[in-house]
Amino acid sequence: MSILNVLFCGVGGQGILTSSRILALAAMHAGLDVKMSEVHGMAQRGGNVDTHVRIGESVPSSLIAKETAHYLVAFEKLEALRNIDFLRPDGLAIVCPLEIPPLALSLKRNHSYLPHIDDILKRTAPRLEWVDAEAIARQMGDRRLVNVILLGALARHLDISTEHWKQAIRDRFSPAAQAACLDAFEKGATHDHMCTPA
């Protein structure tokens, strides 16, 4: 059984579910089977969110096992680290270098965000690509485009044709939003991914 495992993670409200759905739709258009597992409920209240997408000729179950994800698409650095042990030994982490501090419990601890997280990620991820989707989205004038930009960065590693991706994006967004999303997807697919975070 050949199954591709992609895990998306981040913080509630970042568009993680939408990204996962677009990948699933693209796989469907490519004639493949797909199952994904989502988080609902508590996750909407600023909690961490992860979705598992599994694609193949035939996919019996929807959860990715630890150390079997081919790709980890992280919308936030701390969430990348939280899920890093899902990656295979040859897996690739595509990480948006964004820091969203978790809820602070006091001012005294002085460490609401993990120090040296970039180094820890470089050390723990088998392979790592920084994609500053946030900066690209800001340049494009709409921070909500982060999810499509990250999808573009993922897409160049997958054997799903551009036409199927475009079709999936058109399925998911209103005609008014499609042009910007397709543009953002293209930018994610072509930007210089080796840049290190500032």
């Binding site: 059984m1 050949s2 591709l4 694609i55 590693h157």
Partner: peptide, 21 residues
């Protein structure tokens, strides 16, 4: 375990460095 060959991976840089997948 499930065998996890990856038919969708086109990029050569996705191959396992060193060991066989």
């Amino acid at each position: 375990a499930e065998s996890v060959a990856t038919p969708l991976e086109a990029s050569p840089d996705a191959a396992t460095p060193g060991a066989s997948p």
